[in-house]
Simulated assay, not measured.
Amino acid sequence: MRIGVVLIVSITLFGGIVIAQQDSTRASLPQVIIASPLGGWTSERIVTVSGEVHGEGVDFVTLVLNGVSQRIRVEGNNFSRQQVLAPGENVISVYAENKAGVGADTVFVNSSAPRKDLRITLTWDTNGTDMDLWVTEPSGEKCFYSYKETKIGGSLDTDVTDGYGPETYTLSRCVKGSYKVEVHYFGGKEPTLCKEPTFCKVEIVKKEGTSQEERTVYKFLLRHPGEVHLVSEFFIATED
């Protein structure tokens, strides 16, 4: 299922969306078309959100998945980025802004993929930069870009090296013990961006899709390559 193109004139691009008013009469507003996924049902947990945007002065779009936003660079009127779906219904919206205002498209995707006990998602706000999500499990194993699968089933589902994210860690069944979440400013592909301060956002979701679901969001600034930020340390008491 999808919603047709919506035209609006105000948006906050990182950390939430604020719609001021709608205006469907301005022909110069950007047009956004989500080509994939088309909506409906899928058994996949990782999907590629891709499409087109038409309008002058649009270099980036904002993709919002279930309320979590991130920027994506537009190249040749096209955008594309892998996303990790939650079990059940997922709302995917893409917004594009130029001087005339904002255009958007939205699709609804239901995923039948098994739920995860733990999902941790990292996004950030600069292009050409590489932020790394590190998750250390109770055994001491660290899941990160060069060690993506752990013995208890932890997985780094996406590893983005060219800006914005997302990087996503998932674990089907948590084991008892302490978990540590860190973010490392690895660097960037473009020399002018390698040292750029970058705002990061990490969302930790426990027991996703259940009555015990718990979501926590952390926001922080990393100033230079090599910096490591301790996001959270938490203890899982049971394996149920």
Rank of each mutant, 00 (worst) to 15 (best):
M1C: 05
R2L: 10
R2C: 02
I3K: 01
G4D: 11
L7Q: 07
I8S: 10
V9D: 13
S10R: 15
F14T: 12
G15A: 08
G16H: 10
G16R: 14
G16V: 14
I17N: 03
I17L: 14
I17H: 03
V18S: 12
I19A: 13
A20F: 03
Q22E: 10
S28P: 04
L29E: 06
P30E: 11
Q31S: 14
Q31D: 11
S36M: 04
L38D: 05
L38C: 01
G39A: 03
W41D: 07
E44F: 01
E44R: 12
R45N: 05
I46P: 00
V47L: 02
T48Q: 06
V49C: 00
S50G: 02
S50M: 07
E52W: 05
V53H: 01
V53G: 02
G55R: 06
E56P: 08
D59R: 15
D59A: 10
D59M: 04
F60T: 15
V61Y: 09
T62C: 05
L63D: 02
V64H: 00
L65P: 01
N66C: 04
N66D: 07
V68S: 08
S69Q: 03
R71A: 14
I72Q: 05
R73E: 14
V74I: 07
V74R: 02
V74T: 09
G76N: 12
N77V: 07
N78C: 14
R81S: 12
E89C: 02
N90T: 02
V94R: 04
A96Y: 08
A96H: 09
G101P: 10
N110W: 01
A113K: 10
A113N: 06
P114E: 09
D117H: 14
T121Q: 13
D125N: 15
D125R: 08
T126E: 15
N127Y: 13
D130W: 04
M131Y: 08
L133F: 03
W134K: 07
E137K: 06
P138G: 06
P138A: 12
S139A: 10
S139N: 08
S139Y: 06
E141H: 11
S146E: 14
S146F: 10
Y147A: 15
Y147S: 15
K148G: 00
K148E: 11
T150L: 07
T150G: 12
I152K: 07
G153W: 04
G153P: 04
S155C: 03
D157V: 03
T158A: 05
T158R: 07
V160C: 03
V160M: 05
D162Q: 06
G163M: 13
G163C: 07
G163E: 09
Y164M: 06
T170A: 04
L171F: 00
R173A: 14
C174V: 13
C174L: 13
V175N: 09
K176M: 08
K176C: 07
K176D: 05
Y179S: 00
Y179F: 02
K180M: 01
E182M: 08
H184V: 10
F186E: 09
G187F: 10
E190P: 00
T192I: 15
K201N: 12
K201F: 02
K201S: 15
V202Y: 08
V202L: 09
I204Q: 03
K206T: 04
K206M: 09
E208L: 12
E208C: 04
T210H: 12
T210I: 01
S211K: 14
E213V: 14
E214H: 15
R215C: 01
H224Y: 11
G226V: 00
V228M: 14
H229E: 13
L230V: 09
F234A: 03
I236S: 00
A237V: 11
E239D: 07
